[in-house]
Design a protein around this nucleic acid. Structure first.
Lengths: 197, 197, 197, 197
DNA sequence: TATGAATGAGTATTCATTCAT
DNA sequence: CATGAATGAATACTCATTCAT
């Protein structure tokens, strides 16, 4: 009988601990020793659960994404008009803006690091991105893919603002931008309906 | 390798050479040896002009901002309707997407680097953002500041897409997003005019 | 002006120092730190002169082989009968038996290490081997390639004996084996001449 | 994985399994985890039966010698002329070249390992060599001990070639070398008989 | 001024070994 | 007996920086 440890469960716990560490120092800057120390395990143990630093990152991205999606559905009502659902999405983004801003930093850092990297990782991340988009599509029930992409572009742009301004930007500004965008989308949808008939 | 007597002038020339190198490999990944090689000087010479790697980076960011951002909208024609001018802005962005994407990368690197840094740098970048917005405002003659911010958010979001997709995304996708956004803005402006009266 | 060092000359000096270190501990067992320490330089300096541990080994093998050849010709007379020249070869081998035994260990160790290794290294060593054989061929003026291979097989076998017996085998035994082999080869050559006519 | 109660018996079975593993990857390269995996046991179990990696290796060498070497010439027919019997020996060597090449590798590994080791192991291997020579002597009925040693030197040299060339050398080359050597020995014996009378 | 040789702590990763279960 | 999680020192190699020339 081995030491009683739920390998998979413990791996996820370590992953959770990694989020804060990566966010704090960035993918490129943090070392495996620092991660191990931050998690209060040895480097050997770290490698027992993850084959490489890159793997930690990959698994972390996946885990975060899955959490995001389930967190969102735990909070958002599946009912309501398009406007209400757009509002729910934006509310969720604004509530988690701190967290998403960290995630964006992580992603960009990673892309810097693996600039000439193998296609496999890029495709993997691509899939996660696609999954998020599909979830968004199902929730909003918007048919036009361009609108979905537009929303995600907008949210990413918002994060960049958050980075640039490091919290100096007032929260109201973000809310205002969201309202503006929601109105624009609604008007666009309205217009499409009208021109169709 | 020019034999320039003016220390400061030569320093700036070296800095110019660094731009492409940093953009190509990222601050974290490029080594001093690679920079030196890329500039066709020895590491010793590099250290003669810059006290450290971080110093090169900081000076580069500053230099870039000083010369580059102010020219953002210098090219576009001052004539035409709002739609034409929005189109001119988007065309300009798409034409220079490669370049702005590099700058965004540099800035994110900068923020990673100065994560716990002094407020001075943040304010400095803030000023650049404001200047860019003012230029945009003058050009588009749009009164609503939220719209201007929205455009900049959108452009930043577009850059993030460019990073994520590393050229996998077709150019048409970017053009489509721009058209969508232009139409949304025009419709918004139309709506504002109608409700005002 | 750089620090005055003849890069290539110093590299060869380091290489000389490596011979003893490799021979003492084996290619697989010795570490780069130990090599650096043994050469009284830092690991950084070691990597300044050699790109990798494998490269040190490769260059060492080449250097040793070149030295062997030039040492041999410095000693051996180009004149004389086949018997005298065979004798010169065997004398040279026996005189350097200690050294060759170390080299053989090095080679075998290396082959163990790079068992699944890239073809490049194997081809490189192959070339060195071929060069030795060509030199032997020119010296002995023996036309039959099988005889040359036979001599090299015999010498390698002798080294294995030296390893197995670690000097317990008396020197006379080695001399006796050499004489036996020389006589066999001469008799073979004689026979070939007779049957040809 | 048999469930054997006899500790010692099971230990020997594990040892048998180790032979292929060591031969395949070499003492230095194989890890305890790989050995454990290859034997379908856990590392803990491995350490239950053997105190260390080195211990496995040493016990393996001993076990191999005990069972393998004595069977070296058991297969060959006891009838026939000297030529036929030499041919039988060479055929046997060539048939088992793969296996003996592995054993030679193991022994060289052993010598690398025990470079500064106790004399006991060396004497032990010496005995094996002597026993092999005695078996060869009985089989070939050659009186001259130098010839017997010569044959063994030749066979060892052949193995070294096998290692160096890693299968690149065609099998015909080995056969050719064997034929050459047989002819040389026969001619030598002939000569001895002639000069004796 | 300019060079590039030298440094050594630092990097991701491996591995023989231990030990709680 | 058996397991495999845990350890941490060790590995090959890197890199910002220094400094003699």
């Amino acid at each position: 009988m081995p030491k009683i440890v739920d390998h998979d469960q413990y791996r996820k716990e370590l992953l959770q601990g990694c989020l804060a560490l990566f966010a704090e120092r960035g993918y490129g800057s943090i070392t495996m020793r620092q991660i191990a120390k931050g998690l209060s395990v040895s480097t050997g143990t770290l490698y027992h659960y993850f084959p490489s630093k890159e793997s930690i990152f990959m698994q972390l991205v996946q885990e975060l994404c899955e959490q995001d999606i389930s967190n969102f559905f735990a909070q958002a009502s599946e009912e309501g008009s398009l406007e209400e659902r757009l509002q729910a999405v934006m509310d969720f983004v604004l509530q988690n803006i701190q967290k998403y801003h960290q995630q964006l930093l992580l992603w960009v850092d990673f892309f810097q690091q693996t600039r000439e990297g193998s296609e496999a990782e890029i495709l993997f991340l691509r899939q996660i991105w696609d999954r998020t988009r599909d979830t968004l599509k199902d929730y909003l029930q918007v048919q036009d893919p361009a609108i979905l992409d537009f929303i995600m572009v907008f949210v990413d742009g918002l994060m960049i603002q958050f980075i640039y301004n490091r919290g100096f930007q007032r929260m109201e500004w973000f809310e205002q931008q969201c309202q503006l965008t929601i109105q624009m989308i609604l008007r666009h949808e309205q217009h499409c309906l009208e021109t169709q008939t």
